[in-house]
Write a protein that binds this DNA or RNA. Structure first.
Lengths: 216, 216
DNA sequence: TCGCGGCTCCCCCATTTGGGGGAGCCGCGA
DNA sequence: TCGCGGCTCCCCCAAATGGGGGAGCCGCGA
Protein backbone atom coordinates (compact mmCIF):
# COMPACT_ATOMS: atom_id res chain seq x y z
CA UNK A 1 0.00 0.00 0.00
CA UNK A 2 1.27 3.43 -0.92
CA UNK A 3 2.47 6.10 1.47
CA UNK A 4 -0.33 8.63 1.91
CA UNK A 5 0.94 12.22 1.90
CA UNK A 6 -0.73 15.52 2.81
CA UNK A 7 0.92 18.60 1.28
CA UNK A 8 0.81 21.86 3.22
CA UNK A 9 2.37 24.93 1.63
CA UNK A 10 1.03 28.40 1.00
CA UNK A 11 2.60 28.49 -2.44
CA UNK A 12 0.41 26.57 -4.92
CA UNK A 13 3.28 26.16 -7.34
CA UNK A 14 5.38 24.45 -4.72
CA UNK A 15 2.51 22.16 -3.83
CA UNK A 16 2.03 21.29 -7.45
CA UNK A 17 5.72 20.64 -7.92
CA UNK A 18 5.85 18.33 -4.94
CA UNK A 19 2.72 16.64 -6.13
CA UNK A 20 4.14 15.92 -9.54
CA UNK A 21 7.28 14.53 -8.05
CA UNK A 22 5.48 12.32 -5.57
CA UNK A 23 2.72 11.06 -7.82
CA UNK A 24 5.31 9.92 -10.29
CA UNK A 25 6.12 7.27 -7.70
CA UNK A 26 4.01 4.14 -7.59
CA UNK A 27 4.37 3.87 -3.81
CA UNK A 28 3.47 7.45 -2.91
CA UNK A 29 -0.01 8.91 -3.03
CA UNK A 30 -0.87 12.56 -2.41
CA UNK A 31 -4.19 12.46 -0.59
CA UNK A 32 -4.71 16.15 -0.01
CA UNK A 33 -3.37 19.68 0.03
CA UNK A 34 -3.66 22.66 2.30
CA UNK A 35 -2.47 26.23 1.95
CA UNK A 36 -1.95 26.95 5.61
CA UNK A 37 -1.18 25.22 8.86
CA UNK A 38 -4.55 26.25 10.20
CA UNK A 39 -6.24 23.77 7.89
CA UNK A 40 -4.03 20.86 8.81
CA UNK A 41 -5.79 19.42 11.86
CA UNK A 42 -9.17 18.67 10.29
CA UNK A 43 -7.50 17.41 7.14
CA UNK A 44 -5.31 15.05 9.08
CA UNK A 45 -8.34 13.75 10.97
CA UNK A 46 -10.25 13.31 7.76
CA UNK A 47 -7.59 11.94 5.44
CA UNK A 48 -5.37 10.06 7.92
CA UNK A 49 -2.16 10.61 5.93
CA UNK A 50 1.02 8.73 6.76
CA UNK A 51 3.16 11.80 6.16
CA UNK A 52 2.47 15.52 6.30
CA UNK A 53 4.91 17.48 4.15
CA UNK A 54 4.62 20.98 5.54
CA UNK A 55 6.21 24.35 4.88
CA UNK A 56 7.62 26.06 7.97
CA UNK A 57 6.73 29.57 6.94
CA UNK A 58 3.05 30.13 6.25
CA UNK A 59 0.79 33.13 6.76
CA UNK A 60 -1.79 32.11 9.38
CA UNK A 61 -0.28 29.23 11.27
CA UNK A 62 3.33 28.32 10.57
CA UNK A 63 4.76 24.85 10.43
CA UNK A 64 5.98 24.92 14.00
CA UNK A 65 2.59 25.69 15.46
CA UNK A 66 0.92 23.25 13.09
CA UNK A 67 3.35 20.51 14.08
CA UNK A 68 2.68 21.09 17.76
CA UNK A 69 -1.06 21.20 17.14
CA UNK A 70 -1.12 17.96 15.21
CA UNK A 71 1.00 16.07 17.70
CA UNK A 72 -0.99 17.41 20.62
CA UNK A 73 -4.49 16.81 19.33
CA UNK A 74 -4.37 13.87 16.94
CA UNK A 75 -4.16 10.30 18.10
CA UNK A 76 -1.74 8.16 16.12
CA UNK A 77 -0.38 11.24 14.37
CA UNK A 78 1.27 11.17 10.95
CA UNK A 79 4.98 11.70 10.41
CA UNK A 80 5.78 15.31 9.81
CA UNK A 81 8.26 16.34 7.18
CA UNK A 82 9.11 20.02 7.40
CA UNK A 83 9.79 21.86 4.16
CA UNK A 84 12.07 24.83 4.04
CA UNK A 85 13.98 26.98 1.63
CA UNK A 86 16.74 27.81 4.06
CA UNK A 87 19.43 25.38 4.97
CA UNK A 88 19.92 26.86 8.39
CA UNK A 89 16.42 28.04 9.06
CA UNK A 90 15.96 28.45 12.80
CA UNK A 91 12.28 27.71 12.20
CA UNK A 92 13.27 24.24 11.12
CA UNK A 93 15.09 23.54 14.32
CA UNK A 94 12.10 24.72 16.27
CA UNK A 95 9.84 22.53 14.21
CA UNK A 96 12.11 19.55 14.82
CA UNK A 97 12.08 20.30 18.53
CA UNK A 98 8.32 20.53 18.30
CA UNK A 99 8.31 16.95 17.09
CA UNK A 100 8.76 17.02 13.34
CA UNK A 101 10.39 13.88 11.98
CA UNK A 102 12.59 15.40 9.32
CA UNK A 103 13.02 18.25 6.98
CA UNK A 104 13.33 18.78 3.29
CA UNK A 105 14.82 21.58 1.23
CA UNK A 106 12.53 22.98 -1.40
CA UNK A 107 15.19 22.68 -4.00
CA UNK A 108 15.83 19.04 -3.35
CA UNK A 109 15.91 16.84 -6.38
CA UNK A 110 12.90 14.62 -6.97
CA UNK A 111 14.90 11.61 -5.84
CA UNK A 112 15.65 13.28 -2.52
CA UNK A 113 12.06 14.29 -2.05
CA UNK A 114 10.64 10.83 -2.49
CA UNK A 115 13.46 9.36 -0.51
CA UNK A 116 12.74 11.65 2.41
CA UNK A 117 9.04 10.78 2.28
CA UNK A 118 9.76 7.07 2.25
CA UNK A 119 12.24 7.38 5.07
CA UNK A 120 10.00 9.26 7.47
CA UNK A 121 7.09 7.03 6.51
CA UNK A 122 9.13 4.06 7.59
CA UNK A 123 9.90 5.70 10.88
CA UNK A 124 13.39 6.86 10.07
CA UNK A 125 13.91 10.29 11.47
CA UNK A 126 15.87 12.64 9.32
CA UNK A 127 17.54 14.37 12.19
CA UNK A 128 19.12 17.56 11.23
CA UNK A 129 22.86 17.31 11.74
CA UNK A 130 23.41 14.44 9.33
CA UNK A 131 20.68 15.52 7.00
CA UNK A 132 21.90 19.06 6.86
CA UNK A 133 25.38 17.94 6.03
CA UNK A 134 24.21 15.54 3.38
CA UNK A 135 21.90 17.96 1.68
CA UNK A 136 24.19 20.91 2.10
CA UNK A 137 27.04 18.94 0.59
CA UNK A 138 24.92 18.06 -2.39
CA UNK A 139 23.36 21.36 -2.88
CA UNK A 140 25.86 23.97 -3.53
CA UNK A 141 27.60 24.87 -0.39
CA UNK A 142 28.07 28.27 -1.92
CA UNK A 143 25.20 29.24 -4.09
CA UNK A 144 22.49 27.43 -2.24
CA UNK A 145 23.00 29.41 0.90
CA UNK A 146 22.90 32.67 -0.92
CA UNK A 147 19.94 32.37 -3.16
CA UNK A 148 17.67 30.51 -0.82
CA UNK A 149 14.77 32.70 -0.21
CA UNK A 150 11.17 31.98 -0.57
CA UNK A 151 10.34 29.61 -3.37
CA UNK A 152 8.16 32.23 -5.00
CA UNK A 153 9.04 32.89 -8.60
CA UNK A 154 10.35 36.27 -9.65
CA UNK A 155 8.46 38.38 -12.14
CA UNK A 156 10.67 37.30 -14.98
CA UNK A 157 10.50 33.66 -14.01
CA UNK A 158 6.72 33.83 -13.95
CA UNK A 159 6.74 35.27 -17.44
CA UNK A 160 8.99 32.47 -18.63
CA UNK A 161 6.83 29.82 -16.97
CA UNK A 162 3.73 31.23 -18.63
CA UNK A 163 5.37 30.96 -22.02
CA UNK A 164 6.63 27.48 -21.21
CA UNK A 165 3.05 26.56 -20.40
CA UNK A 166 2.08 27.76 -23.87
CA UNK A 167 4.39 25.23 -25.40
CA UNK A 168 7.24 27.51 -26.38
CA UNK A 169 10.81 26.30 -26.40
CA UNK A 170 13.69 28.33 -25.02
CA UNK A 171 14.48 30.10 -28.27
CA UNK A 172 10.90 31.19 -28.82
CA UNK A 173 10.67 32.46 -25.27
CA UNK A 174 13.90 34.37 -25.76
CA UNK A 175 12.55 36.09 -28.86
CA UNK A 176 9.25 36.85 -27.17
CA UNK A 177 10.97 38.43 -24.17
CA UNK A 178 13.69 40.02 -26.30
CA UNK A 179 16.55 38.44 -24.38
CA UNK A 180 19.23 35.91 -25.19
CA UNK A 181 18.59 32.19 -25.18
CA UNK A 182 21.09 31.81 -22.33
CA UNK A 183 19.02 34.10 -20.18
CA UNK A 184 15.97 31.98 -20.74
CA UNK A 185 17.97 28.90 -19.83
CA UNK A 186 18.98 30.56 -16.60
CA UNK A 187 15.37 31.39 -15.77
CA UNK A 188 14.20 27.93 -16.68
CA UNK A 189 16.80 26.37 -14.40
CA UNK A 190 15.71 28.66 -11.57
CA UNK A 191 12.08 27.72 -12.16
CA UNK A 192 12.85 24.01 -12.14
CA UNK A 193 14.83 24.36 -8.92
CA UNK A 194 12.14 26.36 -7.17
CA UNK A 195 9.34 24.08 -8.24
CA UNK A 196 11.26 20.91 -7.60
CA UNK A 197 10.61 19.96 -11.20
CA UNK A 198 13.03 17.81 -13.16
CA UNK A 199 12.25 19.17 -16.58
CA UNK A 200 10.07 21.72 -18.31
CA UNK A 201 7.22 19.28 -18.72
CA UNK A 202 6.97 18.78 -14.97
CA UNK A 203 7.12 22.53 -14.51
CA UNK A 204 4.24 23.04 -16.92
CA UNK A 205 2.26 20.35 -15.16
CA UNK A 206 2.89 22.16 -11.89
CA UNK A 207 1.70 25.38 -13.53
CA UNK A 208 -1.58 23.71 -14.49
CA UNK A 209 -2.06 21.83 -11.25
CA UNK A 210 -1.51 24.94 -9.18
CA UNK A 211 -3.81 27.08 -11.28
CA UNK A 212 -0.90 29.28 -12.26
CA UNK A 213 -2.17 28.83 -15.78
CA UNK A 214 -5.77 27.88 -16.35
CA UNK A 215 -6.90 25.30 -18.83
CA UNK A 216 -9.95 25.98 -20.94
CA UNK B 1 -2.91 47.22 -24.90
CA UNK B 2 -5.96 45.02 -25.13
CA UNK B 3 -6.73 42.50 -27.82
CA UNK B 4 -9.13 44.08 -30.34
CA UNK B 5 -11.85 41.70 -31.46
CA UNK B 6 -14.39 41.89 -34.26
CA UNK B 7 -17.43 39.66 -33.82
CA UNK B 8 -19.08 38.23 -36.91
CA UNK B 9 -22.19 36.12 -36.44
CA UNK B 10 -25.63 36.30 -37.97
CA UNK B 11 -27.25 35.51 -34.64
CA UNK B 12 -27.49 38.64 -32.43
CA UNK B 13 -27.81 36.55 -29.31
CA UNK B 14 -24.56 34.79 -30.01
CA UNK B 15 -22.81 38.09 -30.66
CA UNK B 16 -24.18 39.48 -27.43
CA UNK B 17 -23.07 36.45 -25.49
CA UNK B 18 -19.59 36.59 -26.90
CA UNK B 19 -19.42 40.33 -26.30
CA UNK B 20 -20.40 39.98 -22.65
CA UNK B 21 -17.86 37.26 -22.09
CA UNK B 22 -15.05 39.11 -23.81
CA UNK B 23 -15.72 42.55 -22.40
CA UNK B 24 -15.60 41.10 -18.93
CA UNK B 25 -11.90 40.70 -19.57
CA UNK B 26 -9.64 43.70 -19.01
CA UNK B 27 -7.36 42.67 -21.84
CA UNK B 28 -9.99 42.05 -24.49
CA UNK B 29 -11.92 44.75 -26.29
CA UNK B 30 -14.76 44.15 -28.76
CA UNK B 31 -14.31 46.86 -31.37
CA UNK B 32 -17.14 45.93 -33.68
CA UNK B 33 -19.79 43.48 -34.81
CA UNK B 34 -21.07 42.25 -38.11
CA UNK B 35 -24.00 40.04 -39.02
CA UNK B 36 -22.54 38.55 -42.18
CA UNK B 37 -19.24 37.74 -43.79
CA UNK B 38 -19.97 40.19 -46.55
CA UNK B 39 -19.49 43.07 -44.13
CA UNK B 40 -16.20 41.81 -42.80
CA UNK B 41 -13.72 43.28 -45.29
CA UNK B 42 -14.60 46.95 -44.85
CA UNK B 43 -14.90 46.54 -41.09
CA UNK B 44 -11.49 44.92 -40.84
CA UNK B 45 -10.00 47.74 -42.91
CA UNK B 46 -11.70 50.33 -40.76
CA UNK B 47 -11.29 48.85 -37.29
CA UNK B 48 -8.00 46.94 -37.68
CA UNK B 49 -8.94 44.24 -35.16
CA UNK B 50 -6.36 41.78 -33.85
CA UNK B 51 -8.80 38.91 -33.96
CA UNK B 52 -11.94 38.21 -35.99
CA UNK B 53 -14.24 35.77 -34.22
CA UNK B 54 -16.43 34.52 -37.02
CA UNK B 55 -19.23 32.06 -37.47
CA UNK B 56 -18.74 29.54 -40.26
CA UNK B 57 -22.35 29.40 -41.32
CA UNK B 58 -23.85 32.73 -42.34
CA UNK B 59 -26.49 33.67 -44.93
CA UNK B 60 -24.73 35.83 -47.54
CA UNK B 61 -21.07 35.03 -47.24
CA UNK B 62 -20.02 32.17 -44.99
CA UNK B 63 -16.96 32.09 -42.78
CA UNK B 64 -14.90 30.18 -45.31
CA UNK B 65 -15.38 32.73 -48.05
CA UNK B 66 -14.93 35.58 -45.61
CA UNK B 67 -11.70 34.07 -44.31
CA UNK B 68 -10.33 33.71 -47.81
CA UNK B 69 -11.44 37.23 -48.69
CA UNK B 70 -9.81 38.78 -45.66
CA UNK B 71 -6.52 36.97 -46.08
CA UNK B 72 -6.47 37.71 -49.80
CA UNK B 73 -7.32 41.38 -49.71
CA UNK B 74 -6.14 42.77 -46.39
CA UNK B 75 -2.52 43.54 -45.67
CA UNK B 76 -1.36 42.47 -42.24
CA UNK B 77 -4.59 40.55 -41.70
CA UNK B 78 -6.07 39.82 -38.27
CA UNK B 79 -6.07 36.35 -36.72
CA UNK B 80 -9.24 34.49 -37.55
CA UNK B 81 -11.04 32.41 -34.97
CA UNK B 82 -13.79 30.31 -36.50
CA UNK B 83 -16.93 29.76 -34.49
CA UNK B 84 -19.07 26.71 -34.98
CA UNK B 85 -21.90 24.84 -33.35
CA UNK B 86 -20.88 21.36 -34.29
CA UNK B 87 -17.70 19.64 -33.42
CA UNK B 88 -17.38 17.81 -36.69
CA UNK B 89 -18.40 20.63 -38.94
CA UNK B 90 -16.74 20.13 -42.31
CA UNK B 91 -17.07 23.87 -42.84
CA UNK B 92 -14.58 24.32 -40.04
CA UNK B 93 -11.99 22.19 -41.78
CA UNK B 94 -12.44 24.19 -44.92
CA UNK B 95 -12.09 27.42 -43.00
CA UNK B 96 -8.92 26.16 -41.36
CA UNK B 97 -7.59 25.17 -44.76
CA UNK B 98 -8.50 28.65 -45.93
CA UNK B 99 -6.16 30.02 -43.29
CA UNK B 100 -8.14 30.41 -40.09
CA UNK B 101 -6.02 30.23 -36.96
CA UNK B 102 -8.28 28.24 -34.70
CA UNK B 103 -11.83 27.27 -33.98
CA UNK B 104 -14.20 27.64 -31.12
CA UNK B 105 -17.39 25.82 -30.22
CA UNK B 106 -20.39 28.02 -29.51
CA UNK B 107 -21.10 26.10 -26.36
CA UNK B 108 -17.61 26.75 -25.01
CA UNK B 109 -17.38 28.07 -21.50
CA UNK B 110 -16.41 31.73 -21.07
CA UNK B 111 -12.94 30.81 -19.92
CA UNK B 112 -12.41 28.79 -23.08
CA UNK B 113 -13.59 31.65 -25.24
CA UNK B 114 -11.29 34.27 -23.81
CA UNK B 115 -8.44 31.81 -23.68
CA UNK B 116 -8.86 31.04 -27.36
CA UNK B 117 -8.94 34.72 -28.24
CA UNK B 118 -5.79 35.42 -26.29
CA UNK B 119 -4.00 32.47 -27.79
CA UNK B 120 -4.69 33.32 -31.40
CA UNK B 121 -4.03 36.99 -30.70
CA UNK B 122 -0.56 36.12 -29.54
CA UNK B 123 0.11 34.07 -32.61
CA UNK B 124 -0.32 30.70 -31.02
CA UNK B 125 -2.49 28.41 -33.02
CA UNK B 126 -4.77 26.39 -30.83
CA UNK B 127 -3.17 23.05 -30.34
CA UNK B 128 -5.85 20.66 -31.34
CA UNK B 129 -7.11 22.88 -34.09
CA UNK B 130 -3.54 23.00 -35.33
CA UNK B 131 -3.61 19.27 -35.53
CA UNK B 132 -6.91 19.43 -37.30
CA UNK B 133 -5.56 22.02 -39.68
CA UNK B 134 -2.51 19.96 -40.47
CA UNK B 135 -4.61 16.93 -41.13
CA UNK B 136 -7.19 18.89 -43.04
CA UNK B 137 -4.49 20.36 -45.21
CA UNK B 138 -3.02 16.97 -45.83
CA UNK B 139 -6.19 15.17 -46.64
CA UNK B 140 -9.18 16.49 -48.45
CA UNK B 141 -12.11 18.12 -46.71
CA UNK B 142 -14.22 15.15 -47.65
CA UNK B 143 -11.90 12.96 -45.70
CA UNK B 144 -11.70 15.33 -42.76
CA UNK B 145 -13.81 13.21 -40.52
CA UNK B 146 -11.88 10.14 -41.47
CA UNK B 147 -8.59 11.85 -40.71
CA UNK B 148 -9.93 12.84 -37.36
CA UNK B 149 -10.44 9.22 -36.65
CA UNK B 150 -6.96 8.63 -37.91
CA UNK B 151 -5.81 11.23 -35.41
CA UNK B 152 -7.40 9.37 -32.54
CA UNK B 153 -4.85 7.98 -30.14
CA UNK B 154 -4.59 4.24 -29.75
CA UNK B 155 -5.05 2.63 -26.37
CA UNK B 156 -1.35 2.37 -25.81
CA UNK B 157 -0.73 5.92 -26.92
CA UNK B 158 -3.33 7.18 -24.50
CA UNK B 159 -1.63 5.33 -21.69
CA UNK B 160 1.70 6.88 -22.64
CA UNK B 161 0.18 10.36 -22.86
CA UNK B 162 -1.34 9.98 -19.42
CA UNK B 163 2.03 9.12 -17.96
CA UNK B 164 3.65 11.96 -19.87
CA UNK B 165 1.09 14.25 -18.28
CA UNK B 166 2.24 13.03 -14.90
CA UNK B 167 5.72 14.21 -15.58
CA UNK B 168 7.39 10.92 -16.40
CA UNK B 169 10.24 10.71 -18.88
CA UNK B 170 10.50 7.99 -21.48
CA UNK B 171 12.49 5.61 -19.33
CA UNK B 172 10.06 5.86 -16.43
CA UNK B 173 7.14 5.30 -18.76
CA UNK B 174 8.88 2.28 -20.21
CA UNK B 175 9.35 0.74 -16.77
CA UNK B 176 5.79 1.55 -15.81
CA UNK B 177 4.39 -0.11 -18.92
CA UNK B 178 6.97 -2.89 -18.89
CA UNK B 179 8.21 -2.26 -22.41
CA UNK B 180 11.45 -1.08 -23.92
CA UNK B 181 12.44 2.56 -24.01
CA UNK B 182 12.40 2.42 -27.82
CA UNK B 183 8.77 1.42 -27.77
CA UNK B 184 7.92 4.41 -25.66
CA UNK B 185 9.79 6.63 -28.07
CA UNK B 186 7.77 5.22 -30.91
CA UNK B 187 4.53 5.90 -29.09
CA UNK B 188 5.61 9.39 -28.12
CA UNK B 189 6.45 10.20 -31.73
CA UNK B 190 3.05 8.94 -32.83
CA UNK B 191 1.37 11.05 -30.16
CA UNK B 192 3.23 14.18 -31.18
CA UNK B 193 2.35 13.64 -34.81
CA UNK B 194 -1.32 13.03 -34.10
CA UNK B 195 -1.69 16.00 -31.77
CA UNK B 196 0.31 18.34 -33.93
CA UNK B 197 2.62 18.88 -30.99
CA UNK B 198 6.29 19.63 -31.44
CA UNK B 199 7.51 18.16 -28.18
CA UNK B 200 6.23 16.36 -25.12
CA UNK B 201 5.52 19.61 -23.31
CA UNK B 202 3.11 20.71 -26.02
CA UNK B 203 1.51 17.28 -25.94
CA UNK B 204 0.94 17.56 -22.20
CA UNK B 205 -0.50 21.05 -22.66
CA UNK B 206 -2.86 19.63 -25.26
CA UNK B 207 -3.82 16.90 -22.81
CA UNK B 208 -4.77 19.53 -20.26
CA UNK B 209 -6.44 21.93 -22.67
CA UNK B 210 -8.57 19.20 -24.18
CA UNK B 211 -9.60 17.80 -20.83
CA UNK B 212 -7.83 14.51 -21.58
CA UNK B 213 -6.30 14.96 -18.16
CA UNK B 214 -7.76 17.27 -15.56
CA UNK B 215 -6.08 19.35 -12.92
CA UNK B 216 -6.79 18.15 -9.43
C1' DT C 1 28.69 53.04 0.86
C1' DC C 2 28.30 48.17 0.41
C1' DG C 3 25.80 43.97 -0.25
C1' DC C 4 22.30 41.44 -2.27
C1' DG C 5 18.96 39.96 -5.41
C1' DG C 6 17.22 40.15 -9.99
C1' DC C 7 18.36 40.09 -14.79
C1' DT C 8 21.41 39.45 -18.31
C1' DC C 9 24.91 36.75 -21.01
C1' DC C 10 28.78 33.29 -21.61
C1' DC C 11 31.38 28.65 -21.39
C1' DC C 12 31.45 23.49 -21.26
C1' DC C 13 29.24 19.02 -20.96
C1' DA C 14 26.01 14.97 -20.22
C1' DT C 15 21.53 13.48 -20.99
C1' DT C 16 17.15 13.58 -23.14
C1' DT C 17 14.39 14.19 -26.79
C1' DG C 18 12.68 13.60 -31.31
C1' DG C 19 13.06 12.17 -36.32
C1' DG C 20 14.53 9.06 -39.91
C1' DG C 21 14.77 4.66 -41.30
C1' DG C 22 13.74 -0.57 -40.70
C1' DA C 23 11.70 -5.03 -38.90
C1' DG C 24 9.21 -8.83 -36.63
C1' DC C 25 4.86 -10.45 -34.42
C1' DC C 26 -0.07 -10.78 -33.93
C1' DG C 27 -5.03 -10.26 -34.42
C1' DC C 28 -8.69 -8.91 -37.23
C1' DG C 29 -11.28 -8.25 -41.17
C1' DA C 30 -11.76 -8.11 -46.23
C1' DT D 1 -5.36 -16.08 -47.37
C1' DC D 2 -3.55 -11.56 -47.42
C1' DG D 3 -3.15 -6.93 -45.89
C1' DC D 4 -3.28 -3.63 -42.46
C1' DG D 5 -2.90 -1.53 -38.15
C1' DG D 6 -1.21 -1.86 -33.53
C1' DC D 7 2.65 -3.03 -30.65
C1' DT D 8 7.19 -4.09 -30.05
C1' DC D 9 12.27 -3.33 -30.68
C1' DC D 10 16.55 -1.67 -33.20
C1' DC D 11 19.90 1.63 -35.66
C1' DC D 12 21.85 6.35 -36.43
C1' DC D 13 21.85 11.23 -35.72
C1' DA D 14 20.62 16.18 -34.88
C1' DA D 15 18.69 19.24 -31.74
C1' DA D 16 17.01 20.64 -27.36
C1' DT D 17 17.38 20.40 -22.64
C1' DG D 18 19.39 20.85 -18.15
C1' DG D 19 23.38 21.41 -14.89
C1' DG D 20 27.84 23.24 -13.57
C1' DG D 21 30.50 26.95 -13.44
C1' DG D 22 31.37 32.39 -14.07
C1' DA D 23 30.47 37.42 -14.68
C1' DG D 24 28.70 42.13 -15.41
C1' DC D 25 24.99 45.60 -14.57
C1' DC D 26 21.53 47.89 -11.84
C1' DG D 27 18.40 49.26 -8.19
C1' DC D 28 17.35 49.07 -3.56
C1' DG D 29 17.93 48.90 1.19
C1' DA D 30 20.79 48.24 5.33
Amino acid sequence: MPVRVLLVDDEPLVRAGLRVVMEAQPDIEVVGEAADGAAVIPLVRQLRPDVVAMDVRMPLMDGIEATRAVLRTVTDPPKILVITTFENDEYVYEALRAGADGFLLKRSRPAEVVNAVRLVAEGESLLFPAAVRALAAEYGSTKARESMRRAALTEREEAVLRLMARGMNNLEIAKKLVVGAETVKTHVSAILAKLGARDRTQAVIAAYESGFVSPR
